[in-house]
């Protein structure tokens, strides 16, 4: 039983990581209807930049983080200026393809700027098992994972407040609901896009830091984006709570399956299990976890 709880807990923690990446997707999809395939590579790029600033320029952690945030904002600006603006009003599939192109560009740039070897990311985030959990409940759990979960919680709270309470946040939601209506009340789409891609960039940085601290900064980090996609089918492309809860479900489902089902059918099932779980779920609830039933009109 203890072992099962450990499995579930570590699944939850992994799920939080997925949620972080999925959150970046949701932000951009909500505000612009763009399925941003580059979200995972953005996490890699952010983490690489952070490590690069620390290693090559000897910056202290706090300065490197601020520097990376500045880079991500500059990147958002460049993406809006050179990619989104010329592609405005194109079909969603065209924009999707453009983000795959963007993923290639970022991947190549990250490698050229900061080198393609695996880098350790040590921000002083506590490592190892949590003694307190081990002592009081006899449950083994990584400190890093607790830290990641807490960070994600803070992040989500922050975003919720940002969307509900600030003027910019409300403008973002207005754009999400109706582009033309937003335009007609004088909200500049270009500014909104820069902001939303910047926020997604910062979320990517947080995701990059967490994954990077856990398993080093390397190319495979960009692949976690692929693991975050089933979260989106489960939680819906436009739902922030969906991304969070969906991430947890996928994380737990995946860990449990890996431990209990994996050995029976040959292991290494984590690449596809999340997808199958999401698909099975869809058969029963096509609108996703928090989606509303759409009434189609003609």
């Amino acid at each position: 039983m203890i072992f099962f709880i450990e499995v579930v807990l570590s699944g939850l923690m992994a799920g939080v990581m997925y949620s972080l990446v999925a959150l970046g997707f949701v932000l951009i999809f909500k505000a612009s209807g763009i399925f941003n395939f580059a979200q995972g590579v953005m996490a890699l790029f952010a983490a690489l930049t952070l490590v690069g600033l620390m290693e090559k320029f000897g910056m202290p952690i706090w300065l490197a983080i601020i520097g990376t945030i500045a880079v991500m904002i500059a990147l958002a600006w460049a993406i809006e200026r050179f990619m989104l603006r010329p592609l405005v009003n194109q079909e969603p599939i065209i924009l999707f393809m453009a983000t795959i192109g963007l993923a290639y560009v970022l991947e190549g740039m990250g490698d050229i700027l900061w080198g393609s070897d695996v880098k350790m990311l040590d921000l002083g985030i506590p490592q190892g098992a949590s003694d307190w959990m081990l002592d009081s409940f006899d449950i083994y759990i990584e400190k890093l994972e607790i830290f990641a979960a807490a960070t994600a919680a803070v992040m989500v709270t922050f975003l919720a407040i940002f969307f509900q309470k600030t003027r910019i946040g409300r403008a973002l939601r207005a754009v999400a609901d109706d582009h033309q209506a937003a335009l007609s009340v004088g909200i500049s789409l270009n500014t909104i896009w820069v902001i939303v891609w910047s926020v997604a960039g910062i979320v990517a940085l947080v995701a990059g830091i967490m994954w990077g601290s856990k398993s080093g900064v390397q190319f495979s980090l960009s692949l976690i984006a692929l693991k975050a996609l089933p979260v989106l089918i489960l939680g819906g492309f436009t739902s922030v709570p969906g991304a969070i809860i969906g991430g947890m479900i996928i994380g737990v489902g995946e860990k449990v399956a890996e431990i209990y089902l994996g050995p029976i059918i040959g292991g290494a099932i984590e690449n596809w299990f999340a997808y199958m779980l999401a698909l099975a779920f869809l058969l029963f609830r096509p609108q996703g976890l928090f989606g509303e039933r759409i009434i189609e009109r003609v």
């Binding site: 010329p86 065209i94 290639y104 560009v105 991947e107």
Partner: peptide, 17 residues
């Protein structure tokens, strides 16, 4: 190889535009 994937990415975006 790095420049190649950047170029492919840029070409794709440019082409779509």
């Amino acid at each position: 190889a790095h420049i190649e994937i950047i170029t492919i990415g840029v070409l794709i975006i440019g082409f779509l535009i």
